[in-house]
């Protein structure tokens, strides 16, 4: 199947496959001694559905579980892997590692691994857009999890965005896990949507493992923000299929619950649907998988061949060197 003849749905499937293959490669790297990562395995539909609804003039803030958002935005897996491995060809020259990758050229600005950090900065990015910085009509999307919704800054950010009428899309990937604690221990059921609604902005809760449902809801929310300039909130109900941080044996995870969610794997879901619709056949799916695997292998080679940063650059980029401008 050529990329030209692909439908949007097939493209979304391919990007989800790419994200999964990328993160599986990172797991392999970790087993070989590379730094561990926080994977987003199981949450690919959230990233692909929402990011696909954004335009290049829009801005994205993300968090430590960012691989999906970055790849869905078009990040080069080779440069991402180089960053995770701490090499010079990474998006941040190896200074970020996996946890705080930003790529200004892609509009992926300000990634914070402090849970809630992305929420604290997002209103400012949207305010700058509202005040004329960047291309006209741009909006900001901020990705965070149910863990961040337990931070006080969640409420401060929602309140300010509503009061100041900021063009900001809040995207909560509710994946049931807050590091090593299950969401049931930290909040009442369905609390996130209720908390958000209490701030007086439109809230939609969607099956976060259904990429088409996520995409439809995101398109609607983005269109509404562009039209009314006000914040909207998406809660995407999903599940973290791997541990908090590689390696993680998930001994603390209820096996039945994990099995239930594995049976709802978002990649399998969209693939099954496309196969049933006749949009895709088994050979076509195999072809997609092969293409993705080849890209990831090439990316891995690129990253591993990338040079280490020069230790003499250790203190570069701490300050803007030119200081005050005239």
């Amino acid at each position: 199947m050529s990329a030209v003849g692909m439908t949007d749905a097939l493209r979304r499937l391919e990007v989800m496959l790419l994200i999964r293959a990328y993160e599986e490669k990172l797991v392999e790297f970790q087993r070989g001694g590379a730094p561990g990562t926080c994977t987003s395995v199981g949450q690919e539909a959230c990233a692909v559905g929402v990011v696909g609804a954004l335009e290049s003039r829009d801005r994205i803030l993300t968090n430590h579980r960012s691989a999906g958002h970055l790849i869905a935005r078009g990040a080069d897996p080779g440069r991402l892997m180089a960053e995770v491995l701490g090499r010079v060809d990474g998006y941040c020259g190896g200074r970020s590692g996996s946890l705080h990758i930003s790529a200004k050229e892609l509009g992926v600005v300000l990634t914070s691994t402090i849970v809630g950090g992305e929420l604290s900065m997002a209103p400012g990015v949207a305010l700058a857009q509202k005040m004329g910085q960047g291309e006209p009509g741009g909006i900001t999307a901020v990705f965070f999890g149910d863990g961040a919704a337990c931070e006080g800054i969640f409420h401060e950010a929602l309140n300010l965005a509503v009061q100041w009428q900021l063009p900001l899309l809040f995207v909560c990937e509710n994946n049931d896990w807050q590091a090593f604690v299950h969401r049931r221990e930290t909040m009442p059921d369905n609390a996130i949507a209720d908390w958000a609604a209490g701030h007086g902005l439109p809230v939609v809760t969607v099956d976060g493992n259904d990429v088409e449902a996520v995409h439809a809801a995101a398109r609607e929310a983005v269109a509404a923000i562009r039209a009314d300039g006000r914040p909207h909130f998406l809660e995407l109900v999903t599940y973290r299929l791997r541990g908090h941080f590689e390696p993680d044996d998930q001994a603390y995870v209820d096996a039945d619950e994990l099995a239930r969610w594995q049976a709802r794997d978002p990649l399998q879901g969209i693939a099954d649907r496309l196969l049933a619709q006749g949009t895709l056949d088994a050979a076509g799916l195999a072809q997609l998988r092969d293409r993705v695997a080849a890209r990831i292998e090439a990316a891995a080679h690129f990253a591993q061949a990338s040079a280490w940063p020069d230790p003499r650059t250790l203190t570069h980029h701490v300050y803007v060197e030119q200081g005050a401008r005239p």
Binding site: L61, V109, S120, M121, P123, G124, V125, A128, Q133, N159
Partner: peptide
């Protein structure tokens, strides 16, 4: 609002975005 964390966070986001 009386909320120092979001005042400062908003300043950081705005500063990175051209203000």
């Amino acid at each position: 609002p009386l909320a120092e964390a979001i005042i400062a966070g908003t300043a950081v986001g705005a500063a990175a975005s051209g203000l």
